[in-house]
Design a protein around this nucleic acid. Structure first.
Lengths: 226, 226
DNA sequence: AATTTAATCAAAACCTTATTAAAATACTTT
DNA sequence: AAAGTATTTTAATAAGGTTTTGATTAAATT
């Protein structure tokens, strides 16, 4: 469902490209780059990024123009464009919004701000996901919105990882989740932890939710049964 | 509910003031004027306009600065500020949005455009009035209009940030707000403050509103519970 | 029976939040 | 403009919970 988020970074300054690429890659995004508007449009068509970071002042074709063109392409209509602009630029940057830009970041770009902005954009993108925010199975309610688990109306406190794991297993009760799947979904692809970690979390869940509900399928994985 | 809409027009050019005043009055709005930023802030405080048309380049205090100051006043927080700017102005107009501006019109101002914009703003004003303005949860009342919190009929004074944070959490009681969400909604995406800042504000709220009402969900965020 | 995989447990490592007090900012009042 | 007051942010440390590991034991599979 939510694959890796693709970001196209466009700037004519290689240093800035590098800074952005570094920070974004580290944060787990898939990054491609372009160094002018023309190239940006071309690469955007192929790469189909969810987000484009677009410098305004560039040779060949400026960011505003590129933005306008990109926004005209059906396949990129939903792409979110964030402008990069130097505070001092003598430029009607308001045009950026006219052109269909969604947000902007002023240079120098602070990594923290950048990443927060991206995160919030990504969340906006995936916001229809949190429709699936509540699972009800008989006497069990798992509400991700409130981070709450209720069994027969008794609240059960689950720490974060346990909750995520439970939520995952319960999201398709009966289905066997392999250890790999669990790893990827709960821990993400960027961390490495030993195998015992999953076992221990399953054990905690068994203690709190009920021994019989978490079935081990040896050699394969675990499943939640009602 | 919808009394006459008050508009404050700010420009250093008397001719422009007159044009705007004429058109707006004719359309049925109540208009006051100021000719520089300083005067604008002063008059805004008294007049409490719903809308301010604000020139950017002015003597004494420019429009950006005035906007910033106005937006900081609780009583004018909801005021919509529309900037007037010459398209040719050598100016970082993005600063206008940083300062909290809501829209802009380029000079020369065309009456039709102006009035259309005003009408759409007025519509916006009247549509989300009451919507996001007052929260009542049992014995707690949070009124954003008046920046007021009442518990069992006792007024509680919350400074700006604490109020915003409280308002956010209470707007969906039960829901866990992540730190990112809180940051974005209360502090905005263009400032960076450390993580402890949120903690400290939560602590203040716990002191003033009640310890048990703000639940920490470790690793996730905070929620307000009734 | 040998091998592989999972369960259990407690200790260690790790992280996140709470709490202060002090510093920095912003706002008022004179 | 200056002094005083309130608010917001930071920094450092304490407190507490969560997560992971590693050793050992148990169970299933071949």
């Amino acid at each position: 469902m939510s694959s890796i988020v693709k970001i196209l970074v466009v700037d004519d300054d290689p240093d800035i490209i590098e800074i952005l690429r570094y920070n974004l890659s580290l944060a787990g995004y898939q990054v491609k780059t372009a160094s002018n508007g023309k190239e940006a449009v071309k690469k955007a068509k192929l790469f189909l990024p969810e987000i484009i970071l677009l410098d305004i002042m560039m040779p060949e074709m400026d960011g505003i123009e590129a933005c306008t063109q990109i926004k005209l392409l059906p396949s990129l209509k939903k792409t979110i464009i964030i402008f990069l602009s130097a505070r001092s630029e003598d430029f009607t940057q308001i045009a950026a919004f006219d052109a269909g830009g969604d947000d902007y970041i002023t240079k120098p770009v602070k990594p923290k701000i950048l990443l927060r902005k991206i995160r919030s954009v990504v969340k906006r993108l995936h916001s229809d996901i949190d429709e699936n925010t509540k699972i009800e199975l008989g006497n069990i309610i798992i509400d991700r919105n409130e981070y709450l688990v209720k069994i027969d109306n008794n609240n059960i406190n689950l720490p974060r990882k346990e909750f995520e794991l439970f939520f995952l297993l319960a999201s398709r009760s009966g289905k066997v989740f392999t250890r790999d799947e669990i790893m990827n979904k709960v821990w993400g692809t960027n961390v490495i932890v030993g195998d015992r970690t999953i076992d221990v979390h399953i054990r905690k869940l068994r203690e709190k939710i009920g021994d019989l509900r978490f079935k081990t399928v040896k050699g394969v994985g675990y499943k939640f049964v009602q």
